[in-house]
């Protein structure tokens, strides 16, 4: 209990801006990943990276404000992301079964 209350103090040793910048960087890496990769799974992983950047940020804010709701949100995100993974991978598998590839570049039949 004692230790728990010290956590914010420990975390605050690093300025909040650092967390913000770090997770922003992480988020941007995720975006770049989404933009540059053609493999559906890698893109999906990049999206997960973005979500994790958000998680980190939430955790940091939560600690700085000594407000647990942010951390609770992190759990929600994790749970929902897991569901998303399940569905997403299923879709990817389905596509792989049909066309033996998961390159999003060639999935452009629907256009104009």
């Amino acid at each position: 209990m004692q230790q728990m209350q010290q956590i914010p103090d420990v975390i605050k040793l690093i300025p909040l801006n650092f967390y913000v910048l770090f997770s922003s960087a992480l988020f941007c890496i995720g975006i770049v990943g989404v933009l540059t990769r053609r493999n559906a799974i890698i893109i999906f992983m990049s999206v997960e990276l973005m979500l994790n950047a958000v998680n980190l940020l939430l955790a940091a804010f939560s600690s700085y404000r000594a407000d647990p709701s942010g951390q609770i949100f992190v759990f929600f995100i994790m749970a929902v992301a897991a569901a998303e993974v399940a569905v997403g991978l299923a879709i990817i598998v389905m596509i792989y079964r049909n066309i033996q590839t998961i390159d999003v570049g060639i999935l452009n039949k629907l256009k104009w």
């Binding site: 989404v34 933009l35 893109i43 999003v104 999935l107 452009n108 256009k111 104009w112």
Partner: peptide, 17 residues
């Protein structure tokens, strides 16, 4: 205008970004 819609996911996301 419809040519904007070129069917490529990467391009769509790029436009969004």
């Amino acid at each position: 205008a419809r040519l904007l819609q070129n069917g490529t996911t990467g391009y769509y996301i790029f436009a969004m970004v």
